[in-house]
Write a protein that binds this DNA or RNA. Sequence first.
DNA 1: CCCTGTGAAGCGCTTCACAGCG
DNA 2: CGCTGTGAAGCGCTTCACAGGG
Lengths: 263, 263
Amino acid sequence: MTVDRGTRPARRPVPTTRAHEDDLTPAGVDGGHGARPVPEATVARLAVYLRVLTTLLGEGRGTVSSEELAAAAGVNSAKLRKDLSHIGSSGVRGVGYDVSRLTAEVEATLGLTRPHAVALVGVGNLGHALAGYGGFAQRGFPVAALFDVDPALVGTTVDGVEVEHADSIPRVCAERGVTIGVVATPAPAAQQVCDHLVAAGVRSILNFAPTVLVVPAGVEVRKVDLAVEMQVLSFHVARRHGTVPAAGPAATPRQTPREAVSR
Amino acid sequence: MTVDRGTRPARRPVPTTRAHEDDLTPAGVDGGHGARPVPEATVARLAVYLRVLTTLLGEGRGTVSSEELAAAAGVNSAKLRKDLSHIGSSGVRGVGYDVSRLTAEVEATLGLTRPHAVALVGVGNLGHALAGYGGFAQRGFPVAALFDVDPALVGTTVDGVEVEHADSIPRVCAERGVTIGVVATPAPAAQQVCDHLVAAGVRSILNFAPTVLVVPAGVEVRKVDLAVEMQVLSFHVARRHGTVPAAGPAATPRQTPREAVSR
DNA sequence: CCCTGTGAAGCGCTTCACAGCG
DNA sequence: CGCTGTGAAGCGCTTCACAGGG
């Protein structure tokens, strides 16, 4: 349904509340059958469960309980069971989950039954490290193409893949069936690179550049921002030390008292 | 992005309710009572606002409206205003926010008024790239120490910082007042490294290793897991291609509310 | 008018607690 | 009995809509 807020023109709808379109009866509806969407939060955790399951498989474990799997994944067991219920999994009561079967179910849900060709744009400091990161190909995400604009890099190969000029993005991505793009360029170049990837048909993008990427509806962007991560940690450091200053001119008399420990 | 708020200490699976209040905190962001905590989700966005504000400052902008700032940060304006209300900010009605003042307020809230010494453990592929990533020092997070266990790396310098053996973590971290640790080791080593950091007094950790770190209460862990990010994208690719119900070729009924701004 | 700040409603995720099956 | 699957309650974040100051 294409969100597109931001262009909202002062929203002057009918005076009263918006007509409710949900006929959800509170009690028994159960959401109907089938088309139950997997919550976004669940999807991220499925990937974590999968990692644990892979380890268990390697150890030859046949079954695993929700309690054990949850502990290994760092969540509580109720959440894990709820997550698995979203993918229609079937454990055995009194026993647990069949490891190999659950592994297959999670992989199927995550769309990992076949590889996804990845294009990585920006072979600088970080990009180079990402390209060399074995975890990609190993987990079903072969790096099918590398791009940069630096003439000193174009033509070189990283881990057996040739670096091509960013101008080739449309052609190369189409040729190699790239479905996922990774942006590891400096911030100023990121939006343009993103636009090229989208034009090339890439609908899923992982953004390492410290910029908000604007994309059309239907394109999924996830971002990894090191500065944000560090600053969030900084916030917690400051909070612990009680040094969170109340901003403003003598306003906000409330001050976080010391002894505020959590997590 | 992989936020993972609330890393649970993975306590023993006690069947019934826990009677001990030993160390588990009541799941709030704020330990003390009364003080209105800044929501975790808000903290992450403040970092994004700050980046935009810094740009605006550089352009000499004096004021900015919530609408404009929100658009640049990829959120809607109501959310932005709510976020700013949590830090006790004060805009001017009919005008907007004073850019330099708001910048200072956000920085103060995030605890960026003074630098945070960072220790980076694991100077491999990724770790090396992170160490060389200018964004760290530039944004107030000087890399004060580098550690590894590889004899071939120990003794070398990266970006002017000497790589020391991981055994030195406690001493060096204490000496240099490290408050934030970054774990960029292979998965098997991560937990041990984490334990050392915690023992050295580090209370905030950014984890790049694909493992769940178990830490005592009071230690904040954020994780960045590339495999998880890729697999989440894979899920959306699969969903689009009809492996999972609910999507037609034209209208995606359940589009994740990412930024979909037209400009 | 323009904009901010905010109570209140809405929504989704988390947690609880237990029914129910092996 | 042990353990899964799930209704229902709980909680926090998001969104709405408007009061109110400049």
